Simulated assay, not measured.
Amino acid sequence: MQSQTNYAGIDISKLFFDVAISIDGRYEHYKFSNDEAGFRSLLKLLSLDSQVVMEASGPYYLKLACYLYRNGIAVSVVNPLVIRRFCQMRMTRAKTDKKDSRMIAEYGKTEKPALWKIPEQQVITLQQMEALVLNLNKEITALSNQLESFTHSGMLIRQLEKMIRKELVHKQKRLQELTDVMEKLAEQHYAEMLANLESIPGIGKKTAMMLIVLSGGFSRFDDHRKLSSYIGICPRIFDSGTSVKGKQRICKMGMSRIRAMLYVCTWSAKSCNRSCKELYDRLIAKGKAKKQALIAVANKLLKQAFAIATQKTKYNENYSNNICF
Rank of each mutant, 00 (worst) to 15 (best):
K173M: 03
V133F: 06
E130A: 02
K138W: 04
T179K: 14
W116K: 02
K138L: 07
D100V: 01
W116T: 00
E167P: 01
E167S: 15
E161L: 13
S149C: 12
P119D: 03
L126P: 00
V133G: 02
Q127W: 05
K162F: 08
M91A: 11
Q172K: 15
F86D: 00
E177N: 09
R165K: 15
L143Q: 04
W116Q: 00
M163D: 10
T96F: 08
L178R: 05
S153G: 15
P119R: 04
F150N: 03
N145W: 09
K98P: 00
Q128S: 04
M155A: 09
Q128I: 03
E177T: 12
K138H: 08
H170Q: 12
R93V: 08
Q159Y: 11
K117W: 08
T151K: 14
K99H: 06
I140E: 00
K99G: 01
N135T: 11
S149T: 14
G108V: 03
N145G: 09
M89C: 12
R93G: 07
K109M: 10
A105K: 00
T125G: 01
R174Q: 11
S149P: 01
C87D: 01
Q122A: 02
E106H: 05
E161F: 07
L136D: 02
E139M: 10
E161S: 14
M103G: 01
L143K: 07
M163L: 13
